[in-house]
Nucleic acid binder design. Sequence first.
DNA 1: CTCCTTATTGAAAATGGTTTCCATTACTAA
DNA 2: TTAGTAATGGAAACCATTTTCAATAAGGAG
Lengths: 156, 156
Amino acid sequence: MPRGHCRGQGWWRGRFHGCGYRLTSGREAILSLLSSSKGHMSAEDIYMKIHTAYPNVGLTTVYRTLELLFDLGMICKLDFGDGRARYELAEGAQGARHHHHLVCTGCNRVVEYTDFIDKEVELLKETERGLEEKYHFKITGHVIQFYGLCDRCSGK
Amino acid sequence: MPRGHCRGQGWWRGRFHGCGYRLTSGREAILSLLSSSKGHMSAEDIYMKIHTAYPNVGLTTVYRTLELLFDLGMICKLDFGDGRARYELAEGAQGARHHHHLVCTGCNRVVEYTDFIDKEVELLKETERGLEEKYHFKITGHVIQFYGLCDRCSGK
DNA sequence: CTCCTTATTGAAAATGGTTTCCATTACTAA
DNA sequence: TTAGTAATGGAAACCATTTTCAATAAGGAG
């Protein structure tokens, strides 16, 4: 247990109550799905997967919950350029390591890589500092993504 | 004249004909606007600016032309996360230098920086090679962007 | 220059992911 | 229980981008 904020199935309960939000079954279902699956799911993916067990959770609620979780910093919102947002648990929540994405523009497959990350992060930090100073920005985040064709797609 | 493919107002004519495309006044207007202005314009921005001089060029044509120019590699399509795509002339066309973007999430202002670029590009190349080898991807592009709050927006 | 083929066009309708509206339901504290 | 408020879902609204389709115009052939 590296940090104090991840003890199993319900570590987020306090996080909600602490902000005056209620932990409803829909929210729990979404959060639980996100933390048990690896992928990068769209709102509709999530809606579909949850719908079997929770037929009464609507797509609207999925969107609203995702927005809330994003605002609370519990999840990341990703854009792979296919017109729909994807979501994944923010790092630190699970044993999730910092990673970046490699996206196939042919089949939309996404590889998350952690190789090379150390040097990337180091450079990023440095650049960040430089940019903050020169342009007087308070930098809050970055996106690094590579695009290309995976083996299947480049072989025609 | 550093390279042979940029001689003034009409360097793209051959580029079109060579591919069997026709050079129409709408296309010329859009391309000309893009090469004379610095910013990152959305399709609608372009439509508006052109509309004064070419009232008969519709928004549909703007979208279609931008798609064509993008496919021809003559322009870049950018996503700053505000729901609409932006476009800028691809580098090499003008004296345009390679740059990355710093986006203010408060007011959507975009700064393009060229500082730090050299080290970034170097690292990117390296990472690219590593990723290609390890994941058997043919990498065609990348996105690096920093997000934050500019001085005006961070001062509340 | 004129004709002909075919790329290109604009207006309007369609698309599709995401948000908003609004009346209803479900917590929570007292 | 009761009031006050957060949360919900279904339908409608939004809005950037695409598609449809009949009308038009670019550019090569003659």
